[in-house]
């Protein structure tokens, strides 16, 4: 059985390192919708992917968390990105691969991905309907 001993070791290693990296310094917030609609549409693996990629690449000043239903259930899984001084960006119909691109291109590269944004997807749907 895996025990709590290992956790004690982690704690000891971490001691003294904390405070260097305060959560309040996290400038960008990434929110994944995790209500029934999001979960049913596949939000759990999306959250895992974002969290894993952010940790793996040591992306600085990013805080990943989750949120409830934002009322756009048909567009789930939804990922919202809040950057200080910039308008909120809403990515829709996320999956693992798209989530990975969001981390690489937007969070690391500073280039938001227009094709995944709510307005792009909605416009495409509307023009398809009007044809």
């Amino acid at each position: 059985m895996k025990s709590l001993e290992e956790l004690k070791a982690i704690r000891e290693k971490m001691q003294g390192q904390l405070g260097l990296r305060e959560e309040e310094n996290a400038k960008t917030r990434v929110l994944v919708g995790m209500a029934t609609c999001g979960i049913a549409a596949g939000a759990r693996p999306v959250l895992t992917e974002i969290s894993d990629e952010v940790q793996k690449d040591h992306v600085k000043d990013v805080m990943v968390s989750q949120t409830g239903c934002i009322g756009l259930c048909q567009y789930e899984p939804i990922v919202e990105i809040y950057e200080p001084g910039k308008p909120k960006i809403t990515y829709v119909h996320m999956d693992k691969d798209k989530a990975k691109r969001v981390v690489k291109e937007h969070l690391e590269g500073g280039k938001p991905i227009v094709e995944f944004m709510l307005h792009t997807v909605r416009d495409a749907e509307n023009s398809a309907k009007n044809k």
Partner: peptide, 12 residues
């Protein structure tokens, strides 16, 4: 055990 080390710490 963790004290002020949060669950969000990657190693944790």
């Amino acid at each position: 055990i963790l004290g002020d080390v949060p669950f969000s710490e990657p190693e944790v």
